[in-house]
Write a protein that binds this DNA or RNA. Sequence first.
DNA 1: CCGGAAGTGGAATACCGATTCCGGATCCCC
DNA 2: GGGGATCCGGAATCGGTATTCCACTTCCGG
Lengths: 241, 241
Amino acid sequence: MEYRFRIPTIIGIMVPLEAKSAKARDPRDAAATDGPRRADARRNRERVLEAAEAVFGESGLKAPIEDVARRAGVGVGTVCRNFPTKQALVEAVVGSMYETLLHEAEQALADPDPAHAFERFVVGLPDFQARHRALADQMASENMLASAASPREKLLRAVSELVARAQAAGAIRADIGPGDVSMLFSGVAHATAIVDDLQPVMRERYVRIILDGLRARDATALPGRPLDFAQLRRMRQKHAK
Amino acid sequence: MEYRFRIPTIIGIMVPLEAKSAKARDPRDAAATDGPRRADARRNRERVLEAAEAVFGESGLKAPIEDVARRAGVGVGTVCRNFPTKQALVEAVVGSMYETLLHEAEQALADPDPAHAFERFVVGLPDFQARHRALADQMASENMLASAASPREKLLRAVSELVARAQAAGAIRADIGPGDVSMLFSGVAHATAIVDDLQPVMRERYVRIILDGLRARDATALPGRPLDFAQLRRMRQKHAK
DNA sequence: CCGGAAGTGGAATACCGATTCCGGATCCCC
DNA sequence: GGGGATCCGGAATCGGTATTCCACTTCCGG
C-alpha cells in the first residue's frame, strides 16, 4: 500500500491523497472501534496503541507493522485485527495526540495573561510536534475516524481563541490569523527535526525569533491576508488533485 | 530498497541513514558519470534527468521510477542503466539544483546593499525549495557524488557571507548564524508546501514575519548560540545513529 | 471445571516497486 | 551501406512489507 500525504501544519490540515485498497468499512466494524469484548484483547489493543505511538515517533511512519507488534509483545496478526489497515492504526494514534494537545491549549487558555498564554502554548507546540515527528505529519487527515474529529475541532477553536485574545491585548500583530500561527511554528518543528540532542534549545531559539516577528510594534506590512483554519482547509481542498 | 532521510535544512545537511543494497561502485563506472558514448544515449540521459526533476518535484521522492521513465519517454531499463540506483538518480538531480541555488546566491552577493542582498536571497529561498519539494529534503547528503560537493561548499560559503555582511551593516541581529537562517527559512518552505496555489504569497508572508524577527532592533535575547554550517553538520553527525 | 466463542501468533499470500536481463533496434565508424 | 558495438524497451526477478488465514490458545459464563 502506498501512502501519500501532504506536508502538515502544526494543527495539521491535510489529507491522504489516495487510500488505494481501503476496504469499504462495514458498519459492524464501528462497534469494534472502542474495543474487543474480552479483557485480554482490550489490554492488547491498548498496548498496540502505545507501542505504535512510540515506534512511529522514533522511526517514522514507515516503520513496519512488525516493529510495532514486537514492541507491543504481540503478533502482527493481533495488530492487524485491531486496526484493519496501517492507516487506521496511524489515525488511532493521531486521535489520542489531539487530546493531549487540546489539553495543553486549554491549560494555556486558563492563563489570565493573554500574551503569556499565547507564548506558552506556542513554545510548547513545536516541542510537541517534534516529540511525535512523523505522526505530526499526519494529524487531521480530513477523513479521520469520527472519534478524532471532535477533539480536533475543539483544538482549532482553542488555538483561534488564544490568538484572538493575544491580539486583543495588543501582544501580537493584528494582521495574522490562527492558520498563520500554525504554519509558522510547524515550520520550526520540521526544521529542527535534524538535531535530536539540541532540539529543545534550537526550537526555542527559533520560536523566540518568530515571536519577535509577531509582535505588534515595528511590524512591516504583510502580503496576503490573515489565515484562519477554515481557509487553510479550503486551500488544502483546492490543492488536492 | 528503503530510504530514510532526515528532514532537511534549506541548504540541507543530512544523510541517508542506510543505503542497504548499495553496490560498491566499481571505478569504471566513474567514467560513465558524465555520459554514454553514443549521441542518442546522452540525449536520453539528459531527458531522464529533466523528467526526474519534474516528477520528484511534483510527486515527491517516492514517485516510482516508472513514472520518471514514462515522462522521459524511455523505458525503465534506460533509467536504471544511467543511474544504477534510485538514490543515484536523486543525487544527480540534486547536484544540478545546487548549481542553480549557488547562482542565486552569487547574484545576491553582487548587490551592493547588504541588507537588500540578504533579503533578496532569503525571499527566494523557500520559493526555490518549494519548487523542488521533496528534492530539497535531499540536498546535501554527506556522501553525495563528488560532482555535487563543490557547488555545495561554495553555496554554504556564499550564504555565510550574505549573513555576515547583513550583520556588519546592522541589518539583522548579531546573535544568529547562517545555520539559523537555513533552519528558519526551510521551515517556511515545509509549512507552506500544502498550499500550491497561494504558495508564493504565503511564503513571502512568513518570510516577512521572520525577517521582522531577525532585525537588530528590539530583539529579545535568544537561548543557544549562533549556528553555522559546520556546527549544523556536526549536529547532524551526532544525530545519525 | 467444561465447552465453545473470542483471540492469538506467525507463516503464507498479495502487492508494489527497484533492479536486472536479454532479444531486438539504433547508431556510427569504415 | 554493412556490421558490430551500444542502447533500448519492458518483461521477469527479487526484496520487502501490509494483510490474510488458520491451527492452536485463552478466556469466561454456566
